[in-house]
Nucleic acid binder design. Structure first.
Lengths: 130, 130
DNA sequence: ATTTGTTTACGAAAATATTCGTAGATCAAT
DNA sequence: ATTGATCTACGAATATTTTCGTAAACAAAT
């Protein structure tokens, strides 16, 4: 494996990753403007954070222009999975389905979403049957 | 609401809460011995942590005997929900079902668990239909 | 070419979280 | 009543994370 992901992102770093996963890529200013909506921090704070993340290998960046453009260097899926696993382990007594039930319970999901989940459940069952 | 839960548990505190939720209650030694299996810390470290958690209102304790007995002061469910919400928000683009799919995907669930989830999905649909 | 605004780099302060050493209390067994 | 084991309390050192001030580079507009 090439991408070093020994460094697990901190809370603040996760917020930035979340933004970049959604946007695809962006400058410090782009990220900062979104971050500002839910948080209260100065521009250089965001900058510093993203620089650290780059050092750690959490972000890639293009420095060919004066204003650098960043993007996530670790995949959203693997990060999600890592966080889920830890969460299931420490807070859900090791039971993934307990987590699923809890997640479905308080988040009113759309019919469309529910259908997608059902369909997925069927696929899983088919796989296990054979 | 009586129980002050302004203080969100830290990483280490969550581990302790997880143990106490599962055990119901326990002494510092009880908790420490379980913690030791997955972690490497001294006894007084665990003690101090649990004392801090008591101050914060995360744990209750019975001091009538020399060896104090602790238990969680915040509910597992509400803590789970809080963590899930934040996680959905920052890492799953706000989509609960995306989290559910990811959780089901890599965690091979038992048929029994899958049935429980399906049943639950049906209940949710019934509720929404009316 | 000077000013203005925006950017990066850097260092270090401030805030939080984790760890542990040491002292004193308590109790059981010698 | 002295020893040994175990416990709590407390303070402080470490480590980690977050925050921001300041300086220098750069470009666009005056």
């Amino acid at each position: 494996m090439s991408t070093a992901k020994n460094n697990k992102p901190t809370e603040s770093e996760l917020e930035i990753l979340g933004i970049l996963w959604e946007k695809g890529s962006g400058t410090v200013r782009d990220v900062h403007e979104i971050l500002e909506k839910s948080k209260d921090a100065g521009y250089t704070t965001t900058l510093k954070l993203m620089q650290i993340m780059h050092e750690k290998g959490l972000l890639k960046r293009d420095t060919s222009n004066k204003t650098h453009v960043y993007e996530a260097a670790i995949s959203q899926e693997s990060t999600q999975q890592q966080l889920l696993n830890k969460m299931i382990d420490t807070v859900f007594n090791g039971s993934a389905s307990q987590l699923v039930l809890q997640a479905l319970g308080n988040h009113r999901s759309s019919q469309e979403e529910l259908d997608k989940i059902k369909q997925y459940l069927n696929e899983i069952e088919q796989q296990q049957k054979k």
